[in-house]
Structures are given as structure tokens and as C-alpha cells.
């Protein structure tokens, strides 16, 4: 019997040192609230992070944790997971850590479908180094490193994940506490690598960057909470929806003009990533921002593949015998 944990069991005795008002606090809370519900012994959790504000996360979790180096957490997590498949491995990263210095590792961890959960805290800025443009900072935005406006076009995290053949992608936000917990739970139960973008407000260097999406007053019209198998309805009065129009494009329609039956039904298991890409791509004001699990398809995990190939190999190979192996090949004996 696994002990019944509470949120407190997952809080370490380290003092949390993010800036007051930081979105990271609520993500920490969401994780600490979700883990007790999974019925997994506490010692089986490992949190691995890179460098950045978000990457301090493992210090605050009373689990196993490894605060590593900039961008490399997915590679380290891959080693941990291969070495011990019983562990539940979580990677905590940010937009700079994951998409700039660590871009290569994100790509490969996802395309291999390593059974780890990657939480990307996206605040569209470098926070720990005090306010430089990140790979998700808007084009033209003035930051400390781009005083005349950011000349680089931003990348959208979920596009990177989809392009990397991720089997599970989702989006949520620091202000959506319940939603976040739901997404985390689904990620845990997905057999394979998961990638969750969490929109997170950096109160000091990029305050209000998601206001146009997440401000309470307008939020319901600016986001759509996707649910598998359900028609895509949204809006404060549930009066809007998404359909595919004659051009094959997503279109926001009013439910006064269309019926629910005309709307697109969310299918996370759709093997064709086309619609998932369109959903991930949506942005206000033309579209609502998609929240929730966008894609969750079943593919063999990296660990399963490795164990399978090792098993097949072992069945064909001779029984391991070190002495025999050393004495194999062309040998000769001197009397």
C-alpha cells in the first residue's frame, strides 16, 4: 500500500526564493497538489532541471532532484530513465533553457519518445539573467538585450515539439490552477514523452506578457479548453466554436449561426498532426489560444525499444561469460 500523501509531503524544507508574485509559485503548488493523487511512492519521483528561474524547482520538491546545467536536463533525464525505468522522471525547464541552449536535446528527447515529462515554463524572457530576449520573446519587443526591439522571430514551443514527433503535447497556464493539475495528471498517465508548455508570468521582467490571453476579464473569450472527444466550444457564454472551413482552415464561428454538430471534435489520438498543428498555432485575437492536451498518440517508448532490442539481442547471443569473451577470437597458447 502506498502511503496517502498530501501536498505538504512534497514540499522540501528549502525556502522558496522566486520573486514575490512569480508564476512559478502556482506551478509548484499545482505539481505538489497533483503528485499525491497519483498513488506513487514519493521516492520514485525525480525532478531534473537545467538553468534559469524555473530550474530552481527541484530544490523545493521533497523528492529526488538534480539541478543540472543549462539546456541539458533532457539529456540527463534520458540517462536516468534508461538506467532506472521505474522512476517517474520530470524535467523542469524554461523557454531559454529548452529552446535556445537546449534546443537540440528537446528535439531528440521528444523524437525518441523517452518516457519523461517535460514542463516548459514559458515567460518569453530570460529572468534569472535579468531580462534579455529569449527564443519566445515577441518580434520587435524591447528588452535589455534588444533596446531597439527584438530583431529575431520567436518560435512557438509546441511547434518545436510537434516537429520533433512528440507523442504528447499540451498547454496550460500558471493562472489556471485546476486546469494545470488536470494536464499534469494526463501527462503522468501518458506512456511516452510528454511536453507541456506552461504560460508563466514573469512579474519583474515581462509582466503581463499573457494579459491579452489570460486576463480574467477576457480569458474565457481568448482561450479554448480542449477536451478529447468534445466539440470545440468556447467563450464566456459558450457561444463560439471552431470548425474547419471549405479552405481546410480553422475558423471561429458563432453558435448562433452554426450548431455544435458543425464544430470540430477534438481527437488527441488523431495520427495526422495537421489539425494538432493548427490548434497549437492559434493565437488571439483571431483565434482563442488552445489550452489542454492537444496531442496524445501511442508509440513505443524509447525505454521499451531499448529493452526490446536488448532482449532480442540477448536471445540470439551466447550466455554472457566474461572469461569466454576474453578468450574468444583467434587465440593461441604458449606452453
Amino acid at each position: 500500500m502506498t502511503k496517502q500523501y498530501t501536498k505538504k509531503d512534497f514540499a522540501s524544507d528549502n525556502e522558496v526564493r522566486w520573486c514575490p508574485g512569480c508564476g512559478d509559485y502556482s506551478i509548484l503548488t499545482a505539481v505538489q497538489k497533483t503528485l499525491p493523487e497519483l498513488g506513487v511512492p514519493k521516492e520514485k519521483f525525480v525532478f531534473i532541471s537545467g538553468i534559469g528561474c524555473s530550474s530552481r524547482f527541484p530544490y523545493y520538491m521533497n523528492t529526488y532532484g538534480f539541478h543540472t546545467i543549462h539546456g541539458r536536463a533532457p539529456a540527463i533525464a534520458t540517462g536516468v530513465k534508461i538506467a532506472n525505468p521505474d522512476l517517474s522522471v520530470w524535467v523542469i525547464t524554461g523557454d531559454g533553457d529548452a529552446l535556445s541552449i537546449g534546443g537540440n536535446h528537446i528535439l531528440h528527447a521528444l523524437r525518441r519518445n523517452v518516457d519523461i515529462n517535460i514542463l516548459l515554463f514559458n515567460n518569453e524572457i530570460y529572468g534569472l539573467t535579468k531580462g534579455q530576449a529569449s527564443p519566445t520573446t515577441h518580434y520587435g519587443q524591447k528588452t535589455k538585450s534588444t533596446p531597439s526591439g527584438n530583431p529575431s522571430r520567436p518560435v512557438r514551443p509546441l511547434h518545436v515539439a510537434l516537429g520533433s514527433e512528440a507523442t504528447f503535447i499540451a498547454r496550460t497556464a500558471d493562472v489556471l490552477m485546476k486546469h494545470m493539475q488536470g494536464v499534469l495528471k494526463e501527462a503522468y498517465y501518458h506512456n511516452g514523452g510528454t511536453f507541456i508548455e506552461i504560460l508563466q508570468n514573469c512579474h519583474i521582467f515581462n509582466d503581463g506578457v499573457f494579459k491579452n490571453i489570460l486576463d480574467k476579464k477576457i480569458r474565457d473569450d481568448r482561450i479554448i479548453l480542449l477536451e478529447d472527444g468534445k466539440p470545440m466550444v468556447f467563450g464566456a457564454n459558450s457561444d463560439k466554436g471552431l470548425r474547419i472551413n471549405a479552405l481546410g482552415k480553422l475558423e471561429v464561428v458563432s453558435l448562433e449561426e452554426y450548431s455544435v454538430d458543425d464544430l470540430l471534435v477534438h481527437d488527441v489520438k488523431n495520427p495526422d498532426p495537421g489539425i494538432h498543428f493548427m490548434l497549437a498555432d492559434m493565437e488571439p485575437p483571431e483565434y482563442p489560444e488552445a489550452m489542454g492536451v492537444i496531442r496524445a498518440v501511442k508509440e513505443p517508448t524509447f525505454g521499451e525499444q531499448i529493452r526490446h532490442t536488448m532482449k532480442v539481442h540477448a536471445e540470439q547471443a551466447a550466455t554472457p561469460n566474461l572469461e569466454k569473451l576474453l578468450y574468444s577470437g583467434e587465440t593461441w597458447t604458449v606452453e
Binding site: 531534473i48 538534480f66 543540472t68 546545467i69 541539458r72 539529456a75 540527463i76 533525464a77 534520458t78 540517462g79 536516468v80 530513465k81 534508461i82 538506467a83 532506472n84 522512476l87 537540440n104 536535446h105 528535439l107 531528440h108 531499448i306 536488448m310
Partner: peptide, 21 residues
């Protein structure tokens, strides 16, 4: 366990992860 990594950095990082585990 043999892991052909995406680069030299990932190769050592995965080895460190495995040692940690």
C-alpha cells in the same frame, strides 16, 4: 546500455544521469 546521443554533450550528460541513477 549503449546510448548513441545527439551530440557529445548529451552523451556525457546521459552518462551522468545514469550514474546518478
Amino acid at each position: 546500455s549503449v546510448f548513441q546521443a545527439e551530440d557529445e554533450i548529451a552523451a556525457i550528460c546521459a552518462a551522468i544521469g545514469a550514474s546518478y541513477a
